[in-house]
Amino acid sequence: MTLNALIVDDEEYSRKSLYFLLQENCPDVHIGGIAKSVAEARTLLEEQNFNVAFLDIAMPKENGFELLPQLQSRNIMVIFTTAYDQYALKALKANAIDYLLKPIDIAELKIAVSKAVDWAQMLSVSSGKTAETAKPDVNANKKISLPGTYGFKVIDTADILYVEADSNYSIFHLKTGEKLIISKPLKEFEETLDTFDFIRIHKSAIINMKYVQSYSNKNGLQVLLTNNVVLPVSRRRATEFQEKARQYFTK
Score class of each variant (00 low, 15 high):
168 N>T: 07
188 E>M: 08
195 T>M: 03
173 H>V: 06
194 D>Q: 06
204 S>P: 12
161 L>T: 13
158 A>Q: 14
182 I>R: 01
212 V>R: 06
200 R>T: 08
161 L>H: 05
212 V>L: 09
175 K>A: 13
204 S>F: 03
157 T>S: 09
154 V>Y: 00
164 E>N: 08
203 K>E: 15
137 D>N: 09
140 A>F: 06
152 F>I: 13
197 D>S: 10
161 L>G: 05
156 D>L: 10
156 D>T: 13
194 D>W: 04
189 F>M: 01
203 K>G: 10
211 Y>N: 12
183 S>P: 05
134 A>G: 14
166 D>I: 05
198 F>Q: 05
201 I>V: 15
181 I>S: 08
163 V>Y: 01
187 K>L: 03
178 E>Q: 15
163 V>D: 02
201 I>N: 08
160 I>H: 07
162 Y>F: 15
175 K>T: 15
186 L>M: 03
146 L>K: 08
135 K>T: 09
174 L>M: 15
189 F>K: 01
175 K>N: 15
156 D>C: 06
163 V>H: 03
148 G>Y: 03
183 S>A: 11
153 K>I: 13
206 I>V: 14
136 P>A: 00
172 F>T: 07
160 I>F: 08
166 D>K: 14
183 S>G: 01
165 A>H: 10
191 E>C: 03
136 P>H: 00
184 K>A: 02
212 V>Q: 07
146 L>V: 07
140 A>I: 11
136 P>W: 00
139 N>W: 02
150 Y>W: 01
185 P>E: 00
168 N>H: 12
151 G>L: 01
192 T>C: 03
188 E>I: 00
143 K>D: 04
168 N>S: 13
176 T>A: 08
152 F>Q: 11
157 T>N: 04
183 S>I: 00
150 Y>L: 03
210 K>Q: 14
212 V>T: 11
184 K>N: 09
208 N>H: 13
189 F>W: 02
135 K>S: 07
196 F>E: 11
167 S>V: 11
155 I>F: 07
158 A>F: 12
210 K>I: 05
150 Y>K: 11
151 G>P: 09
213 Q>R: 15
157 T>G: 03
197 D>G: 01
133 T>K: 07
191 E>H: 09
163 V>L: 14
151 G>C: 04
160 I>L: 09
200 R>F: 05
178 E>L: 10
140 A>E: 11
165 A>Q: 10
180 L>S: 07
213 Q>C: 04
159 D>F: 04
136 P>T: 00
210 K>F: 06
175 K>P: 09
149 T>E: 11
195 T>Q: 13
199 I>Y: 02
135 K>L: 11
146 L>W: 07
202 H>T: 05
141 N>P: 00
164 E>T: 03
211 Y>D: 12
169 Y>L: 05
195 T>I: 02
132 E>A: 11
165 A>C: 11
